[in-house]
């Protein structure tokens, strides 16, 4: 008989990491203040871990704890994501007053998603493009390799 405990844990792990990357970015971009969602994530994370303690079987306990601990980390990631937006490493949402303030401050914040591009080359010695590439202009290969 097949043992599905690992499969369910794998699914919980994969979806947790996925949400931790994609969901946290969206949540941070849409929240005017990240403290309330951070507190919600902490509450949810603690709740799931407490439930894991009394869960009826190992699979449910493991899945709850995997998601629970990841949610606790996601609360911390909201603050790290906020820093990435301020640095221009993640796109600012101009419709979010908090992000609009970063943009207006004239620092490094940008609405461009700099990660939304293909790598220059997989194997060649990589040219390093320091500083901020111009918005909307794709880097071309003549810059180094």
């Amino acid at each position: 008989m097949l043992q599905f405990a690992g499969f369910w844990m794998a699914l919980a792990t994969f979806l947790s990491i996925w949400w931790g990357h994609v969901g946290v970015r969206k949540l941070e971009a849409r929240s005017g203040n990240i403290l309330p969602p951070a507190l919600l994530l902490i509450g949810g994370g603690l709740g799931l871990n407490v439930y894991a303690a009394v869960a009826p079987n190992l699979t449910i306990a493991g899945v709850c704890s995997i998601i629970g601990i990841t949610l606790l980390w996601d609360a911390f990631e909201l603050f790290r994501q906020q820093k990435r937006v301020q640095k221009g490493h993640a796109p600012a949402n101009p419709n979010n007053p908090r992000h609009a303030a970063y943009l207006a401050a004239g620092g490094h914040a940008t609405t461009a998603d700099l990660l939304d591009r293909e790598p220059l080359d997989g194997q060649a010695a990589q040219p390093v493009l320091r500083g901020r590439p111009r918005v909307g202009v794709h880097m071309d290969h003549s810059m180094g390799d």
Binding site: M9, A12, T13, S16, N49, A52, A53, A55, L58, I60, A61, G62, C64, S65, I66, G68, I69, T70
Partner: peptide, 8 residues
């Protein structure tokens, strides 16, 4: 359960 969460 907690051990698996921490392992993850």
């Amino acid at each position: 359960g907690l051990a698996l969460g921490l392992f993850s």
